[in-house]
């Protein structure tokens, strides 16, 4: 067996290479990270909405972080329909009570979880939302029931500031 001696030269060669690699990698990061959402985009991260003009059975769409957010004041029939669903029938099982802080108000990101189209309201086989792009059907709680979308419509972080105002984000 030939004895390989680690020389001073080997050591310098490897450490120089390692420093150069670490330096190149750390310098590469700014070039990658510059594409991430910037400070001005992040600054628009929350929106407050006055709920008073909305009557039961009516929806509004507001913009939050460049995305549409559906706010629907559900009718009693829609709430009942959402509550009586058997969770075992759902591709992405979630209780209606986990999706709406106040059952009367459904707040969710209006973007189909398949490929990002905006679903149409009060359409489809489950009387909820229907995405025209690739045919995903959502129920009155915004849960996926049929079609290619993998998950339910996303619920953004929101709080009721008082009886008639919510803050999204």
């Amino acid at each position: 067996m030939s004895e390989k001696q680690v020389t001073r030269r080997n050591f310098l060669y490897v450490t120089t290479g390692a420093f150069a690699a670490a330096g190149a990698a750390s310098l590469a990061w700014p070039f990658v990270d510059q594409m991430n959402p910037d400070a001005s985009v992040k600054a628009l991260a929350s929106t407050e909405i006055d709920l008073r003009p909305i009557i039961p059975g009516q929806s509004i769409t507001v913009m939050w972080r460049g995305k549409p957010v559906f706010i629907r004041r559900r009718t009693q029939a829609e709430i009942d329909e959402a509550k009586k669903v058997n969770l075992a029938d759902l591709p992405h099982p979630e209780e209606d009570s986990d999706r709406a802080q106040n059952p009367e108000w459904l707040v969710m990101v209006g973007i189909c979880t398949h490929l990002g189209c905006v679903p149409l309201g009060q359409k489809g086989d489950y009387n909820g939302w229907f995405c025209p792009c690739h045919g995903s059907h959502y129920d009155t709680s915004g849960r996926i029931r049929k079609g290619p979308a993998p998950t339910n419509l996303e619920i953004p972080d929101y709080v009721f500031l008082n009886e008639t105002t919510i803050k999204i984000g």
């Binding site: 594409m35 959402p37 972080r65």
Partner: peptide
């Protein structure tokens, strides 16, 4: 989000 530079196409 990295591709978009935001939370939606813009």
């Amino acid at each position: 989000n990295w591709l978009w530079g935001g939370y939606a196409v813009g």
